[in-house]
C-alpha cells in the first residue's frame, strides 16, 4: 500500500510539526524546556496507552510498572553498557514483560487484566525493595553527561516512533483485526481472528514505550529509588490525559496531554497538598462530561456541523 495524496500531505505536516517541536531547546528558556520534557513524556505514554486501550477497551493501569522497570534498567546498566543499547534493552524488557502479563490475563475478560495491572507497579516495587534489602543497596546514582535538551530530543523521537507504529498498525491486518475486535469480539472470534494474540501483541507497544521513557528519563533523576521510580500517580495521569484527548484517533492523546500539563502545573503550584484530590475530581469530570474526549467532541462537531453533541457509541 502506498500512501494516497492526502495522506502524503498529512505525513508532511506531521514531519514539519515534529521539526518545529525539536527546535524548542534553542528558542525556549529552561522552564519551557522542562515543560516540553513533561509534554513529550506524557505524549509517548498516553499515545502508546491509547494504541492498546482505545480499540480493545481494556484499561491498563500498569504504566508506572513498565516506566519504573525502564528507569532501573538505565540505573543498573549505565556503568557497563553503551547508552544507546540500554534504551533498546529497556524496550525489549518492557515488551517481554507486557507479553507475560498479556499471556496470563488477555485470554480472559478485561476485568482480570485491570486487576492485574492495578497492583503491578506496587508489586514490582516491593520485589525490587526486597532485592535491594538482600544486597544491602539503598538506591542507585545515575551520573551522566546527558543534558535536558538531549533528553527532550530523545522523547520527541520516541513519540514519532510511537505515532509511526500506531499508523502502521492502523494500515495493517492487525489493525483491521483490532477494529473488528473493538466492534464485537464475538464476531472477530468467529471470523477466525486470534483475539488473545492480537491483544498481547498490541499490549507490547505501551509496555516497550513506557520502559523506554523511564530509561530516557533516568539520568534526570540522578538518584533512583523504588518509591520515585514506581509512583502510582503516573499510571493515573496517563489514563486521564489519554481519555481527555480521546482514543479514537492517533492525535487524540496529544490534545489531552498539552492542556492537562498546563492545568497540572497550575494545580501543583497553587495547591501542592491537594494534588491527588484535584486530580481525582478532574478525572471524574472528564469521565462524566467528555466520555470520548476531545476527539469525540471534534467528530461530533464535524458530523453535525455544530448540532447535537450527544451521539451513541464509545
Amino acid at each position: 500500500m502506498t500512501p494516497s495524496r492526502s495522506e502524503a500531505a498529512r505525513i508532511g505536516w506531521v514531519v514539519l510539526a515534529l521539526a518545529a517541536a525539536a527546535t524548542l531547546p534553542w528558542i525556549g528558556s529552561s522552564y519551557y524546556l522542562a515543560l516540553g520534557v513533561t509534554i513529550a513524556t506524557f505524549t509517548v505514554l498516553a499515545t502508546s496507552w491509547a494504541i492498546f486501550s482505545g480499540p480493545t477497551h481494556y484499561i491498563s493501569l500498569a504504566t508506572a510498572a513498565f516506566y519504573g522497570v525502564g528507569t532501573y534498567t538505565t540505573g543498573l546498566l549505565i556503568e557497563t553498557m553503551p547508552y544507546w543499547s540500554i534504551l533498546a534493552i529497556a524496550g525489549l524488557i518492557g515488551a517481554a514483560g507486557a507479553a507475560l502479563v498479556g499471556l496470563a490475563t488477555l485470554r480472559l475478560s478485561g476485568v482480570y487484566f485491570v486487576i492485574f495491572t492495578l497492583g503491578l507497579a506496587e508489586f514490582v516495587r516491593q520485589v525490587l525493595t526486597w532485592v535491594q534489602n538482600l544486597t544491602g543497596q539503598k538506591g542507585i546514582y545515575v551520573l551522566t553527561q546527558i543534558t535536558e535538551a538531549q533528553i527532550y530530543w530523545q522523547l520527541v523521537g520516541l513519540a514519532a516512533l510511537v505515532w509511526l507504529a500506531g499508523w502502521l498498525i492502523g494500515r495493517s491486518r492487525l489493525g483491521f483485526a483490532l477494529r473488528i475486535i473493538g466492534d464485537d469480539e464475538e464476531v472477530a472470534r468467529h471470523s477466525g481472528i486470534d483475539t488473545a494474540m492480537a491483544k498481547v501483541l498490541l499490549f507490547m507497544i505501551p509496555g516497550a514505550a513506557a520502559a523506554m521513557t523511564g530509561a530516557i528519563l533516568a539520568p534526570r533523576f540522578v538518584y533512583i529509588e523504588p518509591a520515585v521510580a514506581f509512583s502510582p500517580m503516573l499510571s493515573f495521569q496517563v489514563v486521564i490525559m489519554a481519555l481527555l484527548g480521546g482514543t479514537g484517533r492517533l492525535w487524540g492523546p496529544l490534545v489531552g496531554v498539552i492542556p492537562f500539563t498546563f492545568l497540572w502545573e497550575a494545580i501543583s503550584s497553587s495547591f501542592p497538598n491537594q494534588t491527588t484530590l484535584l486530580l481525582g475530581l478532574t478525572f471524574l469530570l472528564i469521565v462524566y462530561l467528555l466520555p470520548r474526549g476531545f476527539v469525540g467532541l471534534f467528530l461530533d462537531l464535524r458530523q453535525h456541523g455544530g448540532g447535537t453533541f450527544r451521539r451513541a457509541g464509545a
Binding site: 484499561i59 493515573f236 481519555l243 481525582g280 471524574l284
Partner: peptide, 12 residues
Amino acid sequence: LVTFGLSFVGVG
C-alpha cells in the same frame, strides 16, 4: 474508570 477516580478522590 469512575471508581478508579473515586479512589484518588478518597486518598486526596
